[in-house]
Design a protein around this nucleic acid. Structure first.
Lengths: 202, 202
DNA sequence: TCGGTAACAGACTGACCGGTCTGTTTGTAT
DNA sequence: ATACAAACAGACCGGTCAGTCTGTTACCGA
């Protein structure tokens, strides 16, 4: 086997991810990605069959990392406490603590860039996103269902679980529109307060 | 004054809004807008100095309509009841009732399309969005501050107010990623439930 | 009725885009 | 050493893009 190209491939992916999150997919040209990653046309189209193939690889890598983050938070919440309500709190606090760090390495979410262009979704680039959405939903539904106990039947637990994903995405957009990345931490703190009040028995 | 061109201008704007929300700004070509609106290059560049000028006009029109929706909900909430907590509930219920209708006329939010591309923001297309964000924040902060009473000091009322905007944008993205517009109504219902629990004195 | 101007229509242009193709380098198995 | 294939490099190509330019048409005041 000749020289190893995985480093080049990863360099292109990382560069492209930043550019696409910042400027959008359609507004990012292959030439830009090549220039910014210090690569070439030959290298790019050796590793990716087309620009669309790049998008699919990007979102797949991103969603996988996202689900890994989810699993990390779940493990942390489970090890922190046995009380179901405290577990929910620990889960949300985990991300709240990391909010500033998250925002410093990515000013927005790749999901937004992909979801903004219908062409990418019909081309199969949205499946990894759906995978991530479902992973978040089922994980949170478990946590929240346990915390609600018998009251779970009266609530839309899945919608409540989805609200965590909704808060993340919405906070990314709020941070963008105001230029203040601190909104992520504040929104996660707000969500934690809301959920705590909701889970407290009347 | 020769013939009236405002109808043509509005037709171009409405067509472009749909296309940009569906496909994104950069992925929408001027030629597409022209073809879909049954117009011409001459007409387009007569009414808009550039494609960027179209984006600015689009977002300004959209934000103005958005703030008008906000004012409508505020008026409704104020006329519905004098109780501060009930007013918050009435405000959120207003949008919850209209959620399905909203999603049937627009599958996503123009804000998302604009915020997804940094070039549009530095070009001054984000100011109307900020105007809308601040309008929602101050209106909701008023409502929520009154509902919290003396407990308002202990809470981040502005972040809680922002959470309404966050829920809207996040729900738009959730609906897109799953293909189910019903998420908007469910997320607004979830938000209403969370806020009601939060506003209930311990 | 006629001059002027806003409102269009559409051929055209140069830049840029995604993608191809030919050629070169580099590591490795034999 | 040599053969071979993967990993690149970059000139090149057809198409599309935003924007221009030269008209033509419709309206209105004088």
């Amino acid at each position: 086997m000749p020289r190893d190209g995985t480093a080049t491939r990863e360099r292109i992916l990382t560069t492209a991810e930043q550019l696409v999150i910042e400027n959008g997919y359609a507004a990012t040209s292959v030439d830009q990605v090549i220039a910014a990653s210090g690569s070439s046309k030959g290298a790019f189209f050796h590793h990716f069959g087309s620009k669309l193939d790049l998008a699919r690889s990007l979102i797949e890598r991103y969603a996988t990392a996202d689900i890994a983050q989810l699993d990390g938070a779940l493990a942390h919440a489970r090890s922190a406490t046995d009380d179901p309500r405290e577990r929910v709190d620990a889960f949300l606090a985990h991300f709240e603590d990391r909010a500033d760090e998250i925002m410093s390495v990515q000013s927005s979410c790749l999901y937004v860039s992909i979801l903004a262009e219908r062409q990418l979704m019909v081309a199969g680039a949205s499946e990894p996103i759906l995978r991530a959405v479902v992973a978040w939903r089922s994980a949170l539904a478990d946590l929240l269902g346990a915390a609600l106990g018998e009251r779970a039947a009266a609530a839309d637990v899945e919608a409540l679980a989805d609200h965590v994903f909704v808060t993340f995405e919405g906070a990314f957009l709020l941070a963008r529109s105001t230029g203040d990345p601190g909104h992520m931490r504040r929104q996660l703190a707000t969500l934690r307060g809301l959920v705590a009040a909701f889970l407290t028995p009347a």
